[in-house]
């Protein structure tokens, strides 16, 4: 199973540091210079800031990813630990955006060689030493990577908890 980053809305204060860290992590340019060069700001994580909830949302790295299925160009691929966009193949048809159930896919210009809008999404900061930048930067501890082990452990521990509750109840 793919690991993924999940947010805890009960902790998030909507500070948007995750968005900024995400852009920084996917940009070769220094942040100070980026503004002068008028580079696009295209985070792969989106803060939802509403009356009802404040939380960042990003890709869940679905196992049967609708974005992969929807892409007519074969530009979205499920590979290794992530669902990944091969931006060179993307033509910006936006079908992935329409398909994604959590709205994790972005189609926008990203800093780099390609000057037209292309699909991009959370890549778990693959290759980044300290792991996902958003998780590292979050001052509220509202973001967390759920890896294979967590996904195995959580249901098991919940079942145990549930079983002991039932035992107490009976």
């Amino acid at each position: 199973m793919h690991p993924f980053v999940l947010s805890d809305p009960s902790r998030c204060i909507g500070c948007r540091a995750c968005e900024i860290a995400c852009v920084d992590a996917h940009m070769d340019e220094d942040m100070v210079e980026a503004g002068n060069k008028e580079l696009p700001f295209s985070p792969r994580i989106s803060i939802v800031h509403e009356a009802e909830v404040t939380a960042p949302v990003q890709c869940r790295q679905c196992e049967e990813a609708p974005c992969v299925a929807a892409c007519p160009a074969g530009a979205v691929v499920s590979e290794g630990d992530t669902v990944r966009v091969e931006t060179e193949r993307c033509c910006g048809c936006k079908a992935c955006m329409a398909a994604c159930p959590v709205g994790a896919m972005q189609v926008a210009v990203i800093p780099g060689k390609i000057k037209t809008p292309v699909a991009h999404k959370c890549d778990l900061c693959t290759g980044r030493e300290k792991g996902p930048a958003c998780v590292e930067v979050c001052p509220a501890g509202a973001l967390r990577v759920f890896g294979r082990e967590d996904l195995q452990r959580i249901p098991v521990s919940k079942r145990r908890q549930s079983a002991s509750q039932l035992a107490g109840y009976n």
């Binding site: 809305p9 939802v48 939380a55 949302v57 159930p101 959590v102 709205g103 994790a104």
Partner: peptide, 10 residues
């Protein structure tokens, strides 16, 4: 969808 996902996370 972002909003719905965030609400679901809640």
């Amino acid at each position: 969808r972002n909003i719905q996902a965030a609400l679901a996370l809640k």
